[in-house]
Design a protein around this nucleic acid. Structure first.
Lengths: 243, 243
DNA sequence: CCAAAAGTGTTATATTTACACCCATGC
DNA sequence: GCATGGGTGTAAATATAACACTTTTGG
């Protein structure tokens, strides 16, 4: 990179600091949430770095010099899940001085929401280090990753109430009960069936499909899909999603 | 720092990358909000770095190797405002590859809320580069600082509705109209006087003082203060501030 | 016919909004 | 006495919460 010759001593200080003294390693860590078997899960990896060999860690990597932070996060996501088109949200930076045993590494936490499907599960199974773990069963992790996971969970819980992001965790076609269960599991509160259904169907952001559940041993439920166009349209007219 | 000898080649890669290849300069930038003359203002500094000499910039600095991100932000705040006890909130990281003309610098944005008082104004006046500018008058800034300011403004607007942070912008003792004006200015919406007063006084987080405004050319208003203890008490019992 | 989830309305309660006048003070 | 903001209550509309039974399918 070319550096302009400038007279101000303040700028020379910056040049020195930027290029020598004050450089730090920067990583991204992804909290990848999935929803399966009525459970909120996180994709974790067996950690191979001392002293955390018995722990699980989040999926992350150092940010390369030629990529943005978001690109780094998407690179991690794609390499571990095979998906490139996922919902991704920056949460917070963690910069405690000794958070990494190999030296100072500040990390930018992202959370992602993905639809766990069979193709994806096969992809994960091939990588013996990877594992979907229920959020409720995760008690401790490598580094400060448990704290990071928890912060991401908090942010996701806050966001899911006011933005239609929950659909990223469900298949394209879902029943109203699946949607209600998702909210109950994520938020940890029971919801009234009739009120929930009225609220959601009256929001006008669901498309009622001409299709039913099949092969269930009870009355099959109608399938719905999220109508993103309708949502975007309503947003510009001052509509608020609020569950 | 001491580095453990480990056998795994993956870890050796990390060591190389962390200590050599992938280091980046990291800075903090503070969007310092103040409220004065019924206006929301930001503390900005004349920029002396080409090509932004005609622009204002946020207050920031590189993060030093021996301090956390928050410590860096507080250091910037204290050096520029003289205050160490201010409300500070991390907002987002900005990591576009060419956001800084001197090389790759990723920056962590914070916003701070401070009470602009006379002592503080004197402090600012001594530094000829510093200036309080109305948010509404800021149209462009150095680097990506306008975008950063805007993101912080958005986050602050969101937070002020659900957390009692507005009090950080007012004097210890304030009138209900001052508080209402603050909300109207920050949120950009008019509020009904009677409804606002009823809501706030019934929340039970304001202490009604035995003191009135003085030297005003109209009926003096009662003064109130924020009762943090009462707020904390209510929070643990599941109370939600929501304006 | 049994088990399991689908689907559907009404009423009571709480919250939010809209709105207008007299009061105290400084000049 | 006039300009300025201080201070107060009520009614209508809206949103939320609670609640139970019949229907449809597979086994």
């Amino acid at each position: 990179m070319q550096i302009k010759q400038v007279s101000n001593h303040n700028i020379n200080r910056w040049i020195t600091e930027i290029h020598n003294d004050f450089k730090t390693a920067v990583s991204v860590d992804c909290v990848i949430f999935g929803y399966d078997e009525n459970t909120l899960k996180v994709l974790v990896s067996a950690c191979d770095m001392p002293p955390f060999e018995q722990k699980n860690s989040l999926l992350g990597d150092l940010v390369h010099p030629d990529e943005t932070l978001e690109e780094a996060a998407f690179r991690v996501l794609e390499s571990k899940t095979g998906f490139s088109d996922v919902f991704l949200e920056q949460v917070q930076v963690f910069g405690a001085i000794d958070r990494h045993p190999l030296g100072r590494v500040i990390t930018i936490a992202y959370y992602a929401l993905i639809k766990i499907d069979d193709a994806h599960l096969a992809h994960v199974v091939k990588d013996t280090k990877l594992q979907w773990m229920a959020v409720s069963e995760l008690k401790s992790m490598a580094f400060d990753h448990y704290e990071i996971m928890h912060m991401c969970l908090r942010k996701m819980r806050r966001q899911i109430r006011v933005q239609p992001i929950g659909f990223n965790l469900l298949p394209e076609k879902f029943t109203l009960l699946q949607l209600q269960n998702l909210y109950e599991v994520v938020l940890g509160i029971p919801l009234d069936k009739r009120n929930f259904r009225r609220k959601l169907t009256h929001l006008g952001i669901l498309t009622q499909l001409d299709e039913m559940e099949s092969s269930v041993s009870h009355r099959p439920a109608r399938l719905y899909s999220f109508d993103k166009d309708a949502y975007d349209e309503k947003i510009v007219h001052g509509f608020n999603f609020d569950l």
